[in-house]
Computed example of a mutant assay.
Amino acid sequence: MSTTQHTAETTAPGRYADVNGVHLYYETHGAGRPMILLHGGLMSGELFAPILPTLTATHQVILVDLQGHGRTADVDRPLDMALMADDIAALIDHLGLDRPDLVGFSLGGGVAMQVAFRHPEKVGRLVSASAHIRRDAVHPELLAQQGQVTGAAAEFMKDTPMYELYQRVAPRPEDFPRLLDKIGEAMAQDFDLTEQVRGLRVPTLIVAADADMAPPSHYVEVFKLLDGGLRDGGWGGEGRPAGGHALAILPGLTHYDIDQSPLFAAVTLAFLDQPR
């Protein structure tokens, strides 16, 4: 173990689990029904700090730093959401959790979805925020920007919160260009999760900002795949999706602040705390 990694482990408030060859960092906060909370790309679990007190008032929250992010060092494999989902499934087993709820934002929302696709028996409920299910759903000008994300951009990001966070907590701060390369490669891959979403058997809340990376219509489309919005809900809710799915488009927010919004915390808790 390198000196930098040893320092990160001894000063951080969390612990590490060795899963699938990844030395995965996680923190546990609060008490109650367990919720695994997954951050966005180039971020870490600590970015949820503004809403963490609200969530931990009634839930045990497990914050995870995904592969190559925050205090979890990168390994020799792509940044693939399916592989990261298997890491989370292994963490659930490692911690002995009984069907915890999964809440994820952006990259974390995609990873949380993949856990529900691949390991539905390990998941209670799912909240996926700002996670589009087709690459072409993203606004075209943003897709063009994503195509420019490579390690060469590291020099231009030195004044950003993402760079500052990585330099402060990463076991190998010099890996930031490598992370950018891998994020860029991942975003360049075409994908369409339509059929996987249609087959979801875990009660799911789809969340988006009203000015998100993809338009609100895309998240309505995702809700329709879950049997949502196709008919009147009825006085007693009898017309709602049979699988217990729901949709929330949050006003006045963007992809860049929804994960820290009290509205996001509120709709998440409202969905997770419904009778089961």
Rank of each mutant, 00 (worst) to 15 (best):
I92W: 12
S261W: 10
L42E: 15
I258C: 04
G108H: 06
R135F: 08
T56K: 15
G40K: 02
M187P: 03
V111E: 01
Q196M: 03
F223S: 04
V61N: 11
E46F: 13
G32L: 05
E185R: 06
A246N: 10
F271Q: 07
G228C: 12
L180W: 15
S44M: 08
A82W: 05
Q260A: 08
L180C: 05
M43D: 15
I249D: 15
A85Q: 13
G110D: 04
D101L: 00
D98M: 02
T254M: 03
K122H: 15
P215F: 01
D80L: 05
P53A: 07
G184T: 08
M162G: 02
L24N: 03
L52E: 02
H29W: 08
A152I: 05
T150Y: 02
P173Q: 02
D101Y: 00
A144N: 01
G32C: 07
E46C: 08
H132T: 05
R125I: 09
F223P: 01
I62W: 00
V123Q: 06
L55T: 10
V202T: 15
L143T: 13
P120D: 14
Q67L: 14
T28F: 00
A137E: 09
P50H: 11
L247T: 14
L24K: 12
M1N: 04
Y25K: 03
M35R: 02
A152D: 09
P13V: 04
D86L: 06
G228V: 14
V103A: 02
A153L: 14
G41T: 14
L63S: 00
M187R: 15
G68P: 12
P275R: 15
T3D: 12
M187E: 02
T4Y: 03
G124L: 12
S130F: 01
E121G: 03
L263I: 12
E121V: 11
L38N: 12
A49S: 09
G244R: 05
Y16I: 06
A73E: 15
V222A: 08
L253H: 05
E195V: 15
R201E: 13
E27M: 02
F191C: 09
L250S: 04
H94Y: 08
D86I: 09
F117V: 13
I133T: 01
A49I: 00
I206G: 01
L272Y: 11
P100A: 07
L47Q: 13
S128Q: 06
P78C: 07
A17V: 06
T28A: 13
R178S: 09
G234V: 13
L24P: 10
R172G: 04
E27Q: 12
G243E: 02
G109S: 04
S130Y: 00
A116G: 02
Y163I: 05
Y163L: 05
G244F: 08
I183V: 10
A144Q: 11
